[in-house]
Structures are given as structure tokens and as C-alpha cells.
């Protein structure tokens, strides 16, 4: 089962996204602070990262840059999410794989995620479990 790490400082978003993803068969883990991200990537080894850009205390783009510098991080798909659509441009510069503008619905979210975690793998993995 694919594991997705969601990072956002808004608890409501964390819960809503988690539930939406779990319904689709993903395992969702969450972090609400920027500094927890690196740690969680190491301990939880997620398959994909959903990262809010404007986190209280830190900038998602900086975190993304740091992740993409590490050997394992290069392979980890990072999707930035933000309510500022203008951030889309700078999201490419920091090495993020994709950008999703808030507000989005479940359909938008799954469409982006499936680009990196194709349905087949998801299905086969859930069959195995």
C-alpha cells in the first residue's frame, strides 16, 4: 500500500486529505510542522509527499529543496499545495514534481497523485496486503 506524507499547518486540511486518501486505499501520515518533515521521511519512508508551501515557521519550497538534495529524496515525488496560485512558478524552481492550487476537490487531488503512484501499483499492492 502506497504511503503518502501530508504536511500542512492546518489540522482541518490534514484530516480531510487523510480521509480522502485512505478511502482510496492509500496510507496517510501527517505532519503539521516543517521541521518534522525530514524526520518523518526517514522513519516512515513515504512514497509521495504532499507539501503545503506556507507553513507556519518555514517555507515548503525550502523543505522541498532540501529533500531533493538527498539521495533518497530525489526519487520521492513532491507535490506542493498552496492557496497562492502565483507560487506555481517558484514551485518548479525548488524541484517539486507538481503543484496543486487550493481549493481542490478529491478528483483534482487523486488525479495528480495517480500521475506518480499509478493505479495499477496501488491495486496490486492492496491485493497483496
Amino acid at each position: 500500500m502506497s504511503k503518502i506524507l501530508i504536511v500542512d499547518d492546518d489540522e482541518g486540511i490534514l484530516e480531510a486529505i487523510s480521509l480522502s486518501l485512505e478511502k482510496e486505499g492509500y496510507t496517510a501520515i501527517t505532519a503539521s510542522k516543517g521541521k518534522e518533515v525530514m524526520e518523518k521521511i526517514k522513519s516512515e519512508k513515504p512514497d509521495l509527499l504532499l507539501l503545503d508551501v506556507l507553513l507556519s515557521g518555514s517555507d515548503g519550497r525550502e523543505i522541498c529543496q532540501r529533500i531533493k538534495k538527498t539521495e533518497k529524496g530525489k526519487k520521492l515525488p513532491v507535490i506542493l499545495i498552496s492557496a497562492h496560485p502565483t507560487i506555481e512558478k517558484s514551485s518548479q524552481e525548488c524541484g517539486a514534481d507538481s503543484f496543486l492550487a487550493k481549493p481542490f476537490d478529491a478528483k483534482d487531488l487523486l488525479l495528480v497523485i495517480e500521475k506518480y503512484l499509478p493505479k495499477e501499483t496501488k491495486v496490486s499492492r492492496s491485493v497483496l496486503v
Binding site: D10, I13, A16, L19, A83, P103, A106
Partner: peptide, 10 residues
């Protein structure tokens, strides 16, 4: 937009 995103997902 933040609560709106949650609302849409819910």
C-alpha cells in the same frame, strides 16, 4: 481557501 479545501474534500 484553506477551510474551503477541507470542505470540498469532506
Amino acid at each position: 481557501k484553506t477551510p474551503l479545501t477541507s470542505m470540498k474534500l469532506y
